[in-house]
Amino acid sequence: MKARTSPGNLSLYWQYIRIHARSGVQYKGWWMMLIQVVFVVFSDVISTLLMFDRFGSIGEWSIDRILLIYFTAVTAFGLAEVFCRGFDTFPFGMVRKGGFDRVLLRPRPLALQVAASAFHLHRLSRPLCGLGVIAFLFCKHHVIMDPARILMLVSALLGGFLMYAGVFILTSGISFFTIQAIDWIYIFTNAGYQVTRCPVEYMPKALYRVFTFIIPVLVISYYPMSVICGWGEPMWKGWLPLPVGAGFLLVSWFVWRFGVRHYKSTGS
């Protein structure tokens, strides 16, 4: 039976997050981290900007089009990093050091404890920058934001968030077995959204398939943007991100559960 004074799960999650945030700002240079992530976000696109500057557009594909797709993926990734950071650091922080043993002892949902085991204020920079760029480009191209379009954008970001949260949870699930050697996961996270820099029409088939059917980065970024801005994809594809993201998360969830059941402690 739950003690009466113990908070509900959601408020427990926020309490964790608040504590992490407050301990983070104890460092004199904490605000520099916010700026640092802004630097990272924009320096990542320097090469794309300079290439378009030198080479001009690629047919219909202007720099703005690429940036819209790219930053949709970046924002979704950023949101997952903010709210599921614990899963991101889980393989190193918990499995290898054996800290997961402690988590198992507490009578609270595992996923909640792991997700809230880390929170970095500066990770907020990435989704905020992404949203800023998307808003700027929408204004620049006079994209009319009627309720349907706003809803589609929100559902795309939410779907992307679920997908990337799924990637983190999947990695954590796999790390129960591999313990380390999970660097390849960057292919699906930080390196993964780099594929959105390539115009979809000119993308090699293999690359397109991997990032549509295996890890649906293009589904959560290219399709909704194409529908919202009217680049020619059919309406129904714009509504795909949410169900696809949720589906991906569900599969990851099973891998995670499977991993937890087969967990053997490595710590001391």
Partner: peptide, 13 residues
């Protein structure tokens, strides 16, 4: 110590 990781990451970027 008291400045944390911020300056370091910018210098490395």
């Amino acid at each position: 110590v008291s400045w944390g990781n911020g300056p370091m990451f910018i210098l490395l970027l």
